[in-house]
Nucleic acid binder design. Structure first.
Length: 482
RNA sequence: CGGGGCGUAGCGCAGUCCGGUAGCGCGUCCGCUUUGGGAGCGGAAGGUCCCGGGUUCGAAUCCCGGCGCCCCGACCA
């Protein structure tokens, strides 16, 4: 019985586990259109929590939301050389409207740099107009060859920030500020530790000067790029003539940044915390932090436990907790437990006649452990429980990452073997030659995820390139990636 | 675009080799009994067997041609 209702385990088939978990938790489903995703209410609720937290962070740092259109004139994409090269192959193009062939085809945005900077050119006149700090929540379309729910779909939801600055230093500071916000969000909300660092030229955003990213390690030891922040330099400013007049009366090009995180983070959440019974959702992002399951035998008990459950729900909600009561009849408590566990609800409170008598509830944590706790002072207790689970999830994920990280392999062979058995992150010296980077990718299927920021680097900087034996110019972090 | 798998009830599948009343499990609906870790019994509803041709007295099954989805590889947040 339990066999047929269980999902494939991570050890059996990680990919099947991921797909079945999403179905079981009702997070998303495949749409009739190839590669597109329907985000179901349980999944969308997580996205809404993410949006709220991030939006607050953006606003607190002076950003404003705006909305730019879905359609972009095709000629716009072509204005920045690297950009067009990067995105042209994966755009969807609208050629007809109202039954007529359009004079100029419209590209469905794969990202909005071009349309946004064309407008910035109009709005920015003077140094007094700078900086412009803008963000938009939007959908984008990229015609990917292979898709997976949340991780890579033809259409996905994200936020894209776009800013314009007076100097390169200011743009760089913005780029790094956002990178730090992303990192904080991923650690404090998703409880997903990330390594931040600089992308190599081969891996950077098409059209950027520099790209920084947040890299997380999933339970199958593959890396997930969870967010990127780009210093665009003056590339787009020059392509779209975004200029301003200085205090001295000179005309100068602005310096831009752009940055984004997407619904892909939900995939990261799943693959960071999920277990063989289903989703484990960090409490700060959970749609329901607590589910109360009333338990009864007689009608009288049903009425009593239900009333008590609703009262408890009201108390906890008043204290700012997201709580729901599972009042369904004709479903045994055990069946409800399995269902809520699959959905990842962090805490469950069982409330039966025994608890009514004792003044307790039976508190079960999604991460394990079940014990009676007094209803008195429960709200305070739950806030503490939430904080504790949030910390525990992050620590567990960090420990897993460290256990699957290799620093300073002794030899090229050790480096290859580690990647060959899907070992995780490997830090090693790199000579900086793009041809070598490509050869490593070719032979090991691993890519340089980033050149880690100082705090992530090894205590002793590597002196030689792991592949060529030549002097190393940087320490790089490799992994096989999603 | 290559390689593999699959399309049959809401979901998961059997039936296809060897043509002959379209089935099983779960779910759903009704009734009664149940409810501290996936309830039981009784009754019921639910199908263009992916689509189009062909062979045949007769096709889910055989033949031809399409389409779609999933998985694995080459591009990517």
């Amino acid at each position: 019985m339990a066999e047929s209702k269980a999902i494939t385990t991570r050890a059996q088939d990680f990919s099947a586990w991921y797909n079945e978990l999403i179905q079981r938790a009702e997070l998303a489903d495949h749409s009739p259109v190839r590669g597109c995703m329907v985000i179901r209410p349980n999944g969308y609720a997580i996205w809404e929590q993410m949006q709220q937290a991030l939006d607050r962070m953006f606003k607190e740092t002076g950003h404003q939301n705006a909305y730019f259109p879905l359609f972009i004139p095709q000629s716009f994409l072509s204005k920045e050389a690297e950009h067009v090269e990067g995105f042209a192959p994966e755009t969807a193009v609208v050629t007809h409207g109202g039954g007529k062939l359009l004079d100029e085809p419209l590209v469905v945005r794969p990202t909005s740099e071009t349309i946004i900077y064309s407008m910035f050119a109009k709005w920015i006149q003077s140094w007094r107009d700078l900086p412009v700090l803008m963000n938009q929540w939007a959908n984008v379309v990229r015609w990917e060859m292979r898709t997976r729910l949340f991780l890579r779909t033809t259409e996905f939801l994200w936020q894209e920030g776009h800013t314009a600055h007076i100097s390169e230093e200011e743009a760089e500071a913005e780029t790094l500020l956002i990178l730090s916000l992303y990192r904080r969000f991923m650690e404090e909300w998703i409880a997903m530790p990330v390594v931040t660092g600089l992308k190599t030229d081969g891996e950077k955003f098409a059209g950027a000067l520099r790209t920084y990213s947040c890299e997380a390690l999933m339970q199958d030891n593959r890396a997930l790029q969870a967010g990127t922040s780009h210093n665009l330099g003056q590339n787009f400013a020059k392509a779209f003539e975004v200029t301003y007049q200085t205090a001295e009366g000179e005309r100068e090009f602005v310096w831009n940044t752009s940055w984004g995180v997407s619904t892909r983070m939900i995939g990261g959440l799943i693959m960071t915390h999920g277990d063989d019974t289903g989703l484990v959702c960090p409490p700060r992002l959970a749609q329901w932090q607590v589910v109360i399951v009333p338990i009864w035998r007689s009608d009288e008990e049903r009425d009593a436990t239900r009333a008590a459950a609703l009262e408890l729900q009201a108390t906890l909600r008043a204290a700012g907790l997201r709580v729901t009561v599972d009042q369904r009849e004709g479903m045994k408590p055990g069946a409800k437990y399995y269902e809520w566990e699959a959905r990842g609800v962090p805490f469950r409170m069982e409330l039966g006649p025994r608890d009514l008598a004792s003044g307790n509830v039976m508190l079960a944590r999604r991460t394990g452990g079940k014990e009676p706790v007094p209803q008195e002072g429960l709200a305070e207790r739950m806030h503490a429980e939430i904080d504790a689970m949030q910390v525990a999830l992050l620590e567990a994920a960090k420990a897993r990452r460290e256990a699957n990280t290799l620093r300073g392999p002794k030899s090229k062979q050790e480096f290859i073997d580690f990647l060959e058995r899907d070992g995780g992150f490997v830090y090693a010296g790199f000579c900086g030659d793009p041809a070598v980077e490509a050869e490593i990718k070719e032979q090991t299927k691993a890519t340089i995820r980033c050149l880690p920021d100082p705090e992530f680097r090894s205590p002793e900087a590597p002196t030689t390139c792991i592949w060529t034996g030549k002097p190393a110019t940087v320490e790089a972090m490799w992994a096989r990636a999603y």
